[in-house]
Amino acid sequence: MINITFMVNHRKHSLEVKPGEYLIETLKRLNIHSVRRGCDTASCGVCTVLVDLKPVPSCATLTARLAGKNVTTVEGIHDEAGALADYFGLEGADQCGFCNPGIALSVHALKQQSSPITEADIKQALTGHLCRCSGYVSQVKAIMAYLKDDAHV
C-alpha cells in the first residue's frame, strides 16, 4: 500500500492506495458518486475527471501518481454544471445524462483555453465522450451557446 495526499474538489485527502488502484475506485471510496463506470476500457469518457484542470478518464489514471495533485469532479463545479445544464435543457441535449458530468468537466477544461473557442474545439473536447442518446449535434450547439453567454467564444 502507498500513502498519498491529494486534493479532491479543494478538500485534502490522505489515504492508502493499492499500487494498481485507479482513481475511479478511489473516488468511490471517498463517496463521490458522480464518477461512474461506463466501459472498463477507457473508451467512453463517462468517468472523466480533471487532474490539475486536464480531463482524464479516471479508470485509466493511477491514484498512486496523484500525490499533490488537484482532482476535480463535477461536485467541484456545481454552479457551473448547473448553468451548462440549462443550455442542454433548451437544446434537448440531455437525455439519460450518464455522460453529462464528464462532459461538464471537459467543458470546464476547455474554458481554460486562452484563444476564442470554436466549434471545432468543442468537437475535439467531446471526442472522448460517447453518448448513445443525443446524436451530439444538440450537445455541440448547447455548449456553444453556453460558452457564448459565458464570454468564452
Binding site: G45, T48, P55, P57, A60, G128
Partner: peptide
C-alpha cells in the same frame, strides 16, 4: 481516442 486518454498515455 479522446483528449482525456491522450492526457494519460
Amino acid at each position: 481516442m479522446g483528449i482525456g486518454l491522450r492526457n494519460v498515455v
